[in-house]
């Protein structure tokens, strides 16, 4: 029986988030970060509100956000380990990265589910 370390689970979350971010992130960032603020396309507020307040939209967004945050936590942790050679502070980095992902997930749940 394999050791029950959390590492394989962290890797699965990393992979799921990697797939979702690869497919969804560019178009969402293009719209929210460039196209809408710069007026390349216009979407009126009422319509956007309809789309974004739909329960299905909220659930899909929550899934994407949580997975993407754990993708970030895992990858950034290894970037600090290898890129900056900080593996000796492994415990602090691990706690910081996944802790940040958990806080972010809680914030995402609050924004997406509580205020409806």
């Amino acid at each position: 029986m394999p050791h029950r370390s959390a590492e394989p689970l962290a890797w699965l979350a990393f992979s799921a988030g990697g797939v979702l971010a690869a497919v969804f992130a560019p178009v969402v960032l293009f719209l929210a970060g460039l196209a809408l603020p710069l007026g390349w396309i216009s979407a009126d507020h009422a319509h956007l509100d309809d789309v974004l307040s739909h329960l299905l939209t909220r659930i899909v967004l929550l899934g994407i956000c949580v997975a993407a945050l754990f993708h970030f936590a895992h990858r950034f942790r290894y970037t600090l380990y290898d890129g900056l050679q900080l593996a000796r502070y492994g415990t602090v980095i691990t706690a910081g990265c996944y802790g940040l992902a958990m806080l972010g997930s809680a914030a995402a749940a609050a924004v997406l589910l509580l205020n409806r």
């Binding site: 960032l29 993708h71 970030f72 950034f76 970037t79």
Partner: peptide
């Protein structure tokens, strides 16, 4: 490639800001 993860986190923050503001 590994640093792209920082911007994945930024994408989440921006998405949440958009949802919050629209609401």
């Amino acid at each position: 490639r590994e640093l792209s993860s920082v911007f994945v986190a930024w994408f989440v923050a921006l998405t949440l800001a958009l949802v919050w503001s629209v609401e």
